[in-house]
Structures are given as structure tokens and as C-alpha cells.
Amino acid sequence: MELKKLLALLAIASLGLTAGCGQKSEDEELMAMANSASKATAVLGTASVAGTVTLTGKAPGTAMFSVDADPVCKAQHTGLVKDETVIADAKGDLKNVIVYVKEGAGNYPAPATSVELVQKGCMYSPHVFGIQVGQPLEIENSDPTLHNVHCLAVTNDSFNVGQPNQGMKTEKKFTKAEMPVKFKCDVHGWMHCFVGVFTNPFYSVTGDNGSFKISGLPAGSYTLVAWQEKYGESAPQKVDIKDGEAKSVNFTFAATN
């Protein structure tokens, strides 16, 4: 008799099942996007800010990793693959840094053109990019192997979609500004990329020489920051700019290991 009670005790051992169920409906999100667009200040200006992002101190060596876990990935590379977390040239010019206006810019309507995110060679391309709220993001699998596109958004709704076949495309839109949003593939643990979601077009991602340019700014006072996936957000820089003016702003990150 006591044994039965014991087994019953085990059977009713506590399980915390309090899964949240407060997800917004798609209709509500679309309504929010429409409201946001109606408040948009669509006028672009003629001023611009350009500059360079550099790394000071000893830059970390280029990390390499293997993609041999999937023969399809392996076949598309010769040997190890370069890690894209920190890419700096000999002068310290940093690639893949998002520079954006953090304060001072209003809301702008989303462009109809899509931003493309491609999975090729079991890598995301681009590795870092920006997009506007409501702008279509087209995610394509160019590999003859399966990927899952796992978006780890916090402010926006996260999603996880499978793309088992080559050529598959998925379109998504973000409904809120969020910086940064990480994407990862859980099939291939090394695959990840970052996107900045903004309410305006005033952002730029540094290229190979660490340079960036933000155009179309109306005259005003702005706060700019730079974000790098290893070093995070830089100190903010204030810029007062007039119509037609081109200002230079540079950012630096201190190398840490």
C-alpha cells in the first residue's frame, strides 16, 4: 500500500508549465507598422556623414574553423574557413561595423526593395547588414544542403524556418527597431550573422577598408554610434550638420582578447 503511494507521489511530481501566451497577432503587428508609416517623415536631406572605424591595439589573429561537419559545406571550401567575427586590415580598419544614427532621426517609410540574405558555402552573406522596419528581407538558401534560419530577435518576434532545398526563399519583415538581431543556423553551428533594424535609412556597414558613409541626412543634430559584434557599441558621437554639408566622424574600438 505504501509503495503505491510512493509511486503516485513520483507520478505527480511538479512540472512548471507556465508557457506564456501573450503573442501579438499578425494583424496587430501590421496595424502597428501602418501607424508607424503614417508618422514617417519622408523627406531626405542633402547632408552626409562619412568616416572610418578602426581597431586600436593588437588585433586578434584570424580565427579559422572547420566546416567538415557537412560534406556539402566542406566541398565548397578549401581547408579551414576564416571566422568573420573581427576582420581588420594591417592598419586596423574594421570591416562589418554598423554605424547608425541613434538619436535625432525620425521615422522614414520602408523601401519596397528587398534586402537579400544569402546562405552560400554554409556562410551568411552579408555577415552584418542593416534593414528598415517594414522592409522585406529575402532569405535564400543557395546551398545544396539544408539550413534552418533561426532569428533570435528579442523586441521583434523571433522565428525559425527550415530551408531544406537549394533555391528556397523566405520573406520576412521586422515590425520594430532592434539593434542588433542575431541570425544563426542550428544545423551548422558556425553560421551566424547580425542585422540592425532601424526606423530610418541612416545607417551604413563598413567595408574592407573600414569606411562608411551615411547620406541623405536632413540638417540637424544627431548622435551616431558604431556597433561591432565582438566589441559591442562604441561611445556616442554628436554631430551638428547643415544642409549640403559633409562631415567626417571616426570611431575606434580597443582590441581585447
Binding site: D70, T145, L146, N148, N160, P164, D186, V187, H188, G189
Partner: peptide
């Protein structure tokens, strides 16, 4: 431990199939 929990995004099927390619986290 391998961070593969969401390597297969759907359920009960896996990538819409009963038996997907067994690659990486899958």
C-alpha cells in the same frame, strides 16, 4: 549540449519529411 535544439524547425515532421538529411545539428 550541441546547440541543436532548433536545427529541425518543424514538428512532428522534420523539414517536412519523415527522414531529413542527417547533417550537422539535424
Amino acid at each position: 549540449s550541441t546547440g541543436s535544439s532548433l536545427a529541425v524547425p518543424d514538428w512532428p515532421l522534420s523539414f517536412g519529411k519523415f527522414f531529413p538529411e542527417m547533417r550537422g545539428g539535424v
